[in-house]
Computed example of a mutant assay.
Amino acid sequence: MGEISIKINIADRVYPLKVSMEEEEIIRRAAKLINDRLKEYQENYAVRDKQDLLSMAVLHYATASLKAERKVTDEDTQVADNVYKLDQLLTNFFSK
């Protein structure tokens, strides 16, 4: 599918983007999550500077991304270990 032009508002700044139609909903949801996080930080902390709020949000989402990445890697390792053990059991069983 083709690209479309959209405008995304983050921290009271508008960013014109060209995105694929498949990505539009995800990008709009991401912008909403960011703005919601900024609003939460602004309400709960004595931070008013948009740059500081954006930095805090970036840190939050980068940390969450790294945690998710680690979890996937750990689960992949566990699956690979279990497949290896199962393969060994089957090899031993059929070699008798």
Rank of each mutant, 00 (worst) to 15 (best):
M1N: 09
G2W: 00
S5E: 15
I8H: 04
N9F: 03
N9P: 00
N9S: 13
I10H: 11
A11W: 10
A11C: 10
D12Y: 11
R13I: 04
R13C: 08
V14T: 12
Y15N: 03
P16N: 02
P16S: 03
P16I: 00
L17E: 04
L17T: 09
V19P: 04
S20K: 05
S20G: 10
M21Q: 14
E22F: 03
E22N: 05
E22Q: 07
E24P: 02
E25K: 13
E25C: 11
E25T: 13
I26W: 00
I27W: 06
R28I: 09
R29N: 15
R29I: 06
A30M: 11
A30Q: 02
A31V: 11
A31K: 05
K32H: 12
K32Q: 14
K32P: 03
L33W: 05
I34V: 15
I34Q: 00
N35L: 07
N35P: 09
R37V: 02
R37Q: 15
L38K: 02
L38W: 01
K39Q: 14
E40F: 08
E40N: 08
E40L: 03
E40W: 05
Y41Q: 09
Y41W: 14
Q42V: 00
E43R: 07
E43N: 13
E43L: 11
Y45A: 07
Y45D: 07
Y45C: 06
A46P: 14
A46R: 15
V47G: 05
R48Y: 11
R48D: 09
D49F: 11
K50H: 03
K50L: 01
K50W: 00
K50G: 01
K50M: 04
K50F: 04
K50Q: 01
Q51W: 03
L53R: 13
S55M: 10
S55I: 12
M56C: 07
V58H: 06
L59T: 06
L59W: 08
Y61E: 08
Y61M: 11
Y61N: 02
T63Q: 11
T63P: 01
A64W: 01
A64D: 14
S65W: 11
S65R: 05
L66E: 12
L66C: 00
E69P: 02
E69H: 02
R70H: 09
R70C: 00
R70W: 06
R70K: 15
K71N: 10
V72M: 10
D74M: 08
D74H: 06
E75V: 01
D76V: 01
T77F: 12
Q78W: 07
V79P: 05
V79R: 09
V79C: 07
A80I: 08
D81G: 06
D81I: 06
N82M: 07
N82D: 06
V83K: 11
V83C: 05
K85E: 12
L86C: 06
L86R: 08
D87A: 04
D87E: 13
Q88C: 14
Q88F: 01
L89C: 05
L89K: 15
L89D: 15
L90S: 00
T91F: 02
T91R: 07
F93M: 06
F93C: 01
F94Q: 07
